[in-house]
Simulated scan of single mutants.
Amino acid sequence: MAGIRSKQKAERPDQILDAAFDEFVRTGYGAARLEDIAKRVGITKGTIYFYYGSKENLFKTLVRSLSAPLATEFQEKEWEWSGDIAADIDYIVSRLYRFILENPKFREVLRLLVAEVDRFPEFVDDNFAEFADPIFASLSRRFDLAVADGDIEPTNTYELARFMVAPPMFLNITSLLFGNRKATDTDAFISIHKSVLRNGLLKPKAAGETSA
């Protein structure tokens, strides 16, 4: 019995976050009530205060917990650079879309942040600095190497990294706005994204030069 109680206690913070996610998505931050979140878990409101202190801190913890996997997914050490920028572009784009498509809760993070930016502007800025900026910086360093190798023209590689992430985010936003009412041919969308990047970025091979 003691082991069961210990396991339940260990799982409680995550259960609260899951319930908070459902409630924040359903009602928005302003209308969400800790009583309703507690009811979803079968606990008292005081238990939520014990773990998270306030609704604001609960919200911020939830957003961080959902944003963190994206940063982890795209830490520089996680990339498997091939040395071939064309292959790496395909690799980057595929991973971006795979993450978006396989993590539906991440789509809701964007909705929550956009909805609450006026309420928590500093938190939104901190969230960007902690999770998004390192991704752009990591991709920027890869493009810096491509510029140095003569594979792409000199450019603002940080903005190029942001540009690469923009279409997956657009797909994310349209799925939030329209759901299944405005279906997107995802495979075609991804293929076009890759083609535009390859054709727009890569320098033509010098005459007589063969691919590695």
Rank of each mutant, 00 (worst) to 15 (best):
A188N: 10
A146E: 05
A161Q: 01
K194W: 13
L177R: 03
T157K: 08
S191C: 08
D151F: 04
S191G: 04
F189H: 14
V147E: 00
F178I: 03
F178A: 06
R142N: 13
F143C: 00
R142T: 09
L160G: 08
G179H: 01
A146R: 04
T184L: 14
A161P: 02
A188Q: 12
K182G: 01
F163E: 14
K194R: 15
A146D: 05
A148C: 03
N180K: 10
L145F: 13
V196L: 15
P167N: 03
A183G: 00
M169Q: 01
G179R: 02
D144F: 13
K194V: 15
E153A: 15
A166N: 06
R198G: 00
G200V: 07
N199G: 13
I192D: 05
R141P: 02
V147I: 02
N180D: 13
D144Q: 15
S140V: 01
D185A: 08
F163A: 15
V196D: 06
Y158T: 04
R181W: 02
R181E: 12
S195A: 14
L177S: 04
M164E: 01
A188P: 03
T157F: 07
D187R: 11
R162L: 10
D187A: 15
G179P: 02
P168W: 03
T184F: 11
I192W: 06
D149G: 04
E159V: 08
L197Q: 09
S140F: 01
M164P: 02
G150M: 03
R142C: 10
T174R: 08
G179F: 05
N199M: 14
I190W: 05
I152S: 06
L176P: 02
V165L: 13
A146T: 06
D187L: 07
D149N: 14
N180L: 08
P154H: 10
F189W: 10
I190S: 06
L176N: 06
R141W: 06
L176C: 01
L145M: 13
S140H: 06
L160S: 06
S175G: 11
M169I: 09
F178R: 00
G200F: 11
N199T: 12
T155A: 09
F170Q: 01
S191D: 14
V165M: 14
M164Y: 08
P167L: 06
F178N: 00
A161T: 03
N172G: 10
I173T: 11
F163K: 12
N172F: 13
L160F: 09
